[in-house]
């Protein structure tokens, strides 16, 4: 991964907008770390769901099916 993994400014902006608060310097890295964990979870679950429904790979339907539970799981 030659380039920076994610646009830090964008993440900061997004979280700032939702929290209506400023972020400390490296908080966004941890937030992105958490986001990576979340994505891992989503894709794992989606892969399981899509396999269960007989689809190949990860489909959008399986992602939508799974994301609700994953968001709940990652709710603070």
């Amino acid at each position: 991964m030659p380039q920076t993994l994610y646009p830090r400014g964008t993440v900061k902006k997004i979280v700032k907008a939702h929290a209506n608060r400023p972020l400390s310097k490296n908080a966004d890295i941890l937030i992105f770390l958490k986001y990576a964990l979340f994505m891992q979870e989503v894709i794992k679950e989606a892969g399981i769901a899509s396999k269960r429904s007989g689809e190949r790979g990860v489909s959008a339907r399986s992602v939508r099916k799974v994301r609700e539970g994953c968001l709940r799981k990652f709710k603070g």
Binding site: V11, I14, V15, K16, A17, H18, A19, N20, R21, A27, I31, K34, Y35, F38, M39, V42, I43, A46, G47, R56, G57, V58, S59, A60, V63, R64, R67, C70, L71, F74, K75, G76
Partner: peptide
């Protein structure tokens, strides 16, 4: 798995990540 993400899946994932950041932002706040 060797399959890769289709456009629909990517769109769903992007939406999901938007939801996620909204949730995270509120939690962190």
């Amino acid at each position: 798995s060797k399959t890769k993400i289709s456009k629909d899946t990517l769109a769903a994932l992007v939406q999901t990540s938007d939801f996620y950041f909204e949730q995270v932002g509120e939690d962190l706040a």
